[in-house]
Write a protein that binds this DNA or RNA. Sequence first.
DNA 1: ACATTGACCTGAGAGC
DNA 2: TGCTCTCAGGTCAATG
Length: 261
Amino acid sequence: MPELPDVETFKRYVDSTSLHHRIKKVEVDAPRMLRVAPRILRKALEGSEFSKTERLGKYLLISVKGGPWLVLHFGMSGMLEYAKDAGERPAHTHLLVHFANGYRLAGIWQRRLGRIDLADDPVAYAEAHDLGPDALDRAIGLKDFKRMLRERRGTIKAALMDQIFLSGIGNIYSDEILFQSGTRPDVKVSGLSDARMRTLHRAMRHVLRIAIARQADPDRLPESWLLPHRYKGGKCPYCGGALQQKRSSGRTAYFCPHCQQ
DNA sequence: ACATTGACCTGAGAGC
DNA sequence: TGCTCTCAGGTCAATG
């Protein structure tokens, strides 16, 4: 679930709550998600403070002053909660950072699919993990977008969701981008016209920007979007026809067979 | 170079 | 009530 707009919202949340407080203690319990020894993680954080954040696709990186970056990936169910440190922890908490100001930041993963790691540098981390440019990277203009698409085969939906191609877009938002650009999910990239690539590029930036502005809250997304209607039996907000679902590459794509050609 | 499948994990909902 | 099955989502590895 946490795709680019959700993670951007987490980033702003951390920025407004968790920076510049001395880290008193770190508790971590995340056997599978943890890519670094618990001891190393604690040692890197305790006594220091978070100083700034960066987002790379679906990854959130938090800089530890005078140390490495804490890397968080939220998988399908991860979230953060900053609250008064009252000694208890929310269910499914696998990372707990106690600050000297009496608050704590909890990393909550209901399903234990995610990642907790350390990195020396965001750029190096992205390279090491085959992360493509962020989908909202200003440097990815229309020209680059077209060039990148021309190098690919396969379907457009697979391309959008491929984190090596572009990072940040998953199943949910790829459906929205395809809907708003009137493109079928299973269209082959090789058959896309210049005009269609332009529309896709626009829709991609538009969808991600608006979703961020609405804090990636599904209840606050425009009714004219696909997402509020993206369920079994949902109707296209544009033509009123039944939305279709189709399974491809293990994911369910929702689209309007009438409005998306 | 692409698609497909299953594993990972958990809770919700369906169907019996 | 309670069991079993399926599904959702992101990533990764194995296979076609």
